[in-house]
Design a protein around this nucleic acid. Sequence first.
DNA 1: CCAAAAGTGTTAAAGTTACACCCATGT
DNA 2: ACATGGGTGTAACTTTAACACTTTTGG
Lengths: 232, 232
Amino acid sequence: MDQDALNFDPHVSVDCVILGFDGESLQVLLSRRGNEVPEEQYNNLKLPGRLLHTDEDLDEAALDIITSVTGKHHPLVKQFRAYGSPSRTSNPKDVLWLENAIKQKIGRIVTISYLSLMRINSRTARPKDNDAQLWYPVQDLPSLAFDHNQIIQDTLNELYRMAGQQPQMLFEMMPAKFTAAQLRRLHEQVSGKTLDVRNFAKLVMNKPYIIPLNEWEQNVSHRAARFYRFKP
Amino acid sequence: MDQDALNFDPHVSVDCVILGFDGESLQVLLSRRGNEVPEEQYNNLKLPGRLLHTDEDLDEAALDIITSVTGKHHPLVKQFRAYGSPSRTSNPKDVLWLENAIKQKIGRIVTISYLSLMRINSRTARPKDNDAQLWYPVQDLPSLAFDHNQIIQDTLNELYRMAGQQPQMLFEMMPAKFTAAQLRRLHEQVSGKTLDVRNFAKLVMNKPYIIPLNEWEQNVSHRAARFYRFKP
DNA sequence: CCAAAAGTGTTAAAGTTACACCCATGT
DNA sequence: ACATGGGTGTAACTTTAACACTTTTGG
């Protein structure tokens, strides 16, 4: 090991890209920080995350973060990528913020990012300490702290890739009962392509793990859509 | 950020899984450490890697490590995954080794692993400092330091996945001139399946980026195989 | 002439894509 | 009755998988 590595220990944090789907569009859960920094500063929004605790595995930290901001207990998590550029912490606003939060001089933070998928409901965005959590559509995000916009973009590309191979994972984001159109819109959002309605019905909706229910939409001004559920 | 995170900064290292192919089997480049620990100790072999330097990006560190052990300048590298379990450094032999090398008490090391593919030749395994580098077949590896056996396994699975989507990346591991059988053996090693000779010839060997040469094997006791080269 | 590996096409099956009309409901 | 989105089948095309014999060379 080389000499100039001695005694250099960057901070290590875990940040989570928690994605959900509201039936219309893909959403990401962001933390809005409390009072330390004026509200109007653009980078008051960030991914949920924190420094790694002593004796805590990376996956454990991700699970803990996700559970604490969403209340969901065994969420699907997948480690995605580490970000360690020294310039990550170069924005003065981010530095101010960090030093406020960590109460020490910050040289540099290596972050391990995680992807998590979940259903959006009334419980999946709950205040935690000083922070409030809110779902934002991934199209048209505001500027976020650090390189978090980049992390989200990279993670969406990863989601696209993974969903191509295991489309079942998308059910993590669907409500317990859903219509064919909702599931199709999710596939479309993830892949960025518009899908043929008939082919989608044939190829996806009659997979053995998609169970049609004897329930239909209510009070819609057009033919009511059938509900389905997912059998794991 | 939580209180008990304060002042906890694990070491951060970068380890590289450098894979090559000798025409017969997949190989991984391992470092054999020098004198500090008796030769016969099983975990004298490890992945090439080191602690992260101050002001060095993760990708930079990986490139530097790979270049320094193989001499290759712009190698293909891809970040693969972070490993941060506190139990990574629990083996007493590994602890002894580390404290020898780093000259300080080691609590814990979070490592970022990288995948790199390259051609095996006389220059791609060269001694560096106290360490010697050697290619080992990935089947039948000895026990390595830390969780490096696990890292290699995980990386091979990733290689399998990536090669399924972009088979061109495998050319990084092929010699400049190669036969159809060599390329097929590489595909077989990566996928773990045996491939049909005729289908392989049809589907792979007459891609536009594979150029047949007017050269054939010499002095083989069977019909001589044609050589091909890869056009990027 | 024997052993060993190289080289070469066809056919069936599966999967993917393209495409248009009628249905149910609320206003 | 009309506007809105829901639901359904077929045919062309593309991709993948299965399969066996002849060629070249050295010993």
